[in-house]
Design a protein around this nucleic acid. Structure first.
Ligand code: SF4
Ligand code: SF4
Lengths: 163, 163
DNA sequence: CGTAATGCGGATATTGTATATCCATTAGGA
DNA sequence: TCCTAATGGATATACAATATCCGCATTACG
């Protein structure tokens, strides 16, 4: 069970966008170069974010992405599920219905205890991620990064900001 | 992010083994027929369980698997990790080191806040599964399955029990 | 206007992993 | 001695993740 690496990419992208001045945009190209990942593929992930309203893109030169709402209103869960999908990690194929001693066409209604327990664990995972906001991440990153690195990064980003 | 379907298989297999009389064994063939899954592939999953000491197999006719310790001492997490591996769901490829404005060879020590948050969610997931024992599952299944189905199942299993 | 830069979406190639099967070996029961 | 079972290695198959490519619509800017 492994998350896509796009999850890591968009989390970092959102962190960057959250640290930008109000209303500023960054292009996919800039975000891809900054993180050293393929631009075309990162683009797909950012489109997923745009579709669920986490970021919003704009066309043309000076176009790019910015957060569609305040960073404090964006949770880790929002970002992860935008890329990874909201499905359960435990998929049930109803193998309990295959038992040769059961009547054919036997379909008990509702999930059994096995599925309930697995799904409860999923819920715990989701709750944990839902409790973490993007703004909290940006604050923390600003606090633990060395000052010189922060200013160099800020300078590099400033040159790439559009609009 | 999706768990292997082997996880569903071995959870059901363990539930069956837990409901067997003390010391009784079931062969891979019987377990595969009961669940309607390919015997050879299920065998791989059961071998994973055997390697970490959840079940123990024995050779020869009248051979098969039984639980290696009391069902109360086996957690869902034990079973899931035996098949799925104990790795983290969030894999970090250190893309923060790729920023063109960072000094080459830049490697901050320790995981950043992003990874810490994702891993905390993983821990919550694990904690939830670790809290659920196999014996509790067997009890619950015995309580919620219709009585006639239970007796028919018990009869079918009885014929397949070895030793 | 025209041009270049951008997001968008579809199509497709590439890679890797999950799934599934096969076989040789070892061991034990009858 | 023969049959059945687990074990482990090798291998085939199916499918999803990864990555690239291209045509299009939109927009800023000269
Ligand atoms: S986990 Fe529960 S719901 Fe899923 S196949 Fe097994 S018995 Fe059915
Ligand atoms: S450790 Fe943190 S900063 Fe580095 S790649 Fe992983 S998530 Fe990104």
């Amino acid at each position: 069970m492994q998350l896509r690496n796009q999850v890591e990419w968009v989390l970092h992208c959102c962190a960057i966008l959250a640290m930008l001045p109000e209303g500023a945009r960054l292009s996919t190209r800039a975000l891809a170069e900054f993180h050293g990942v393929p631009k075309e593929y990162l683009s797909k992930a950012l489109q997923s974010l745009a579709q669920v309203g986490i970021v919003e893109g704009s066309l043309g030169p000076a176009g790019g992405y910015r957060l569609a709402r305040p960073a404090s209103a964006i949770s880790f869960l929002d970002i992860v599920e935008a890329v990874e999908g909201g499905g359960r990690s435990f998929a049930c194929t109803e193998i309990r219905c295959n038992a040769p001693c059961h009547p054919p066409g036997f379909r008990p209604e509702g999930p059994c205890q096995v599925a309930r327990i697995m799904w409860r664990a999923d819920d715990a995972w989701r709750r944990e991620l839902a409790a973490q906001s993007l703004s909290a991440l940006a604050d923390q990153l600003g606090r633990e990064l060395p000052a010189d690195l922060q200013s160099r990064t800020a300078g590099w980003l400033k040159k790439r900001i559009s609009s």
